[in-house]
Simulated assay, not measured.
Amino acid sequence: MRTPRCWRHLLAVVLVAVILPAPIYAMASPTDEPTSLRNEADDGAASDQQAVSRELELFRGSAISLSQAMAIAEALHAGATTADVSFDGAPDSPVYRVKTLHNDRIWHHTIDATTGKIVGGEAAFPLKEFDAGDRSNLVALKTIRQRLADAVRVAEHAASGKAISGGLIRERGRLNFAIVVMTGNDLKAVILEPPGAARRR
């Protein structure tokens, strides 16, 4: 698969392993800590690890991809673009949480990861209700050609895996896309800086 032309001049592509919840028993602990507390910590770490493993297993088995969920949400409002998307395996049926930007509003959608159907209704929030940092990122999103969907394709290709979440971050005054990709049993964060991303304070 070739890299899309609009991403050939990326200024930065960084792959970083995302740290899964580390077993607490692997961390240094005071020698005077009661054994019972250490055991409770071990149980909590094991429980966290099981929850992460369960979520990743549900994601592997989902019929709808993150890109498909974004396309479904964007199709609800002509001209909408995704600002944030993530897989959620916590509900009875796993879903994608998708936030799209359209007409100076952020629309929240829930997409069933098995069927692709919309779950529940949709909610919309005006940009003015967001804090200055988020509002700045969303305004900048409207000024660049690249979309989160483009970033997901590039990240999946770069990390040889399937995207499980994506959104906007700002580093050194520039808007970046941050995509988390599952590759085998590992999660990797792919940071993409679109060319021409506006600097906004």
Score class of each variant (00 low, 15 high):
167 G>D: 10
1 M>I: 05
168 L>H: 11
129 E>T: 14
67 S>N: 03
38 R>W: 03
134 D>G: 03
155 A>Y: 08
175 L>K: 04
59 F>N: 00
81 T>S: 06
184 G>W: 13
148 L>H: 09
188 K>T: 04
110 T>H: 00
33 E>C: 11
173 G>L: 07
195 P>I: 01
75 A>Q: 09
57 E>Q: 09
145 R>T: 05
98 V>S: 01
20 L>W: 03
57 E>A: 13
197 A>Q: 07
33 E>L: 15
167 G>Y: 03
67 S>M: 06
143 T>Y: 09
169 I>S: 14
12 A>C: 06
136 S>L: 13
43 D>H: 09
152 V>K: 05
170 R>W: 01
72 I>D: 04
96 Y>K: 00
28 A>T: 09
43 D>I: 10
115 T>C: 11
15 L>Y: 03
90 A>D: 08
100 T>K: 03
154 V>A: 06
192 L>M: 07
76 L>P: 00
103 N>M: 10
40 E>T: 12
119 V>D: 00
23 P>F: 12
78 A>Q: 07
38 R>V: 04
165 S>R: 09
86 S>Y: 01
197 A>R: 00
75 A>F: 05
117 K>M: 07
56 L>Q: 04
123 A>R: 12
116 G>F: 10
71 A>M: 06
123 A>D: 11
123 A>Y: 05
131 D>M: 06
167 G>K: 06
107 W>S: 06
25 Y>D: 08
132 A>Y: 03
84 D>W: 09
71 A>E: 04
66 L>P: 01
100 T>D: 04
36 S>N: 14
58 L>Q: 12
8 R>K: 08
135 R>T: 07
27 M>W: 13
188 K>F: 10
56 L>N: 02
26 A>F: 15
34 P>I: 15
7 W>S: 15
119 V>S: 02
41 A>V: 10
196 G>F: 10
116 G>Q: 05
38 R>L: 12
6 C>E: 15
75 A>G: 08
120 G>V: 09
146 Q>L: 07
93 S>N: 07
47 S>P: 02
92 D>T: 15
15 L>F: 04
26 A>Q: 15
112 D>V: 02
157 H>R: 07
142 K>V: 11
59 F>A: 00
19 I>T: 10
120 G>C: 07
33 E>Q: 10
117 K>Q: 09
178 A>E: 05
169 I>Q: 14
73 A>E: 02
149 A>P: 05
128 K>S: 13
103 N>W: 14
181 V>W: 00
1 M>V: 14
184 G>K: 14
201 R>W: 10
191 I>W: 11
69 A>Q: 00
36 S>E: 14
112 D>H: 08
87 F>M: 02
39 N>L: 15
64 I>G: 02
161 G>N: 06
122 E>P: 03
164 I>N: 00
143 T>I: 02
18 V>D: 13
69 A>M: 07
119 V>I: 08
185 N>D: 09
149 A>Y: 05
142 K>F: 03
185 N>E: 10
72 I>F: 12
80 A>M: 14
175 L>D: 01
47 S>H: 11
47 S>K: 14
180 V>T: 13
77 H>T: 13
179 I>W: 00
127 L>A: 06
188 K>Q: 08
114 T>N: 05
47 S>Q: 11
150 D>T: 11
160 S>V: 12
140 A>N: 08
18 V>I: 15
55 E>I: 02
79 G>A: 14
67 S>V: 03
182 M>W: 01
91 P>I: 08
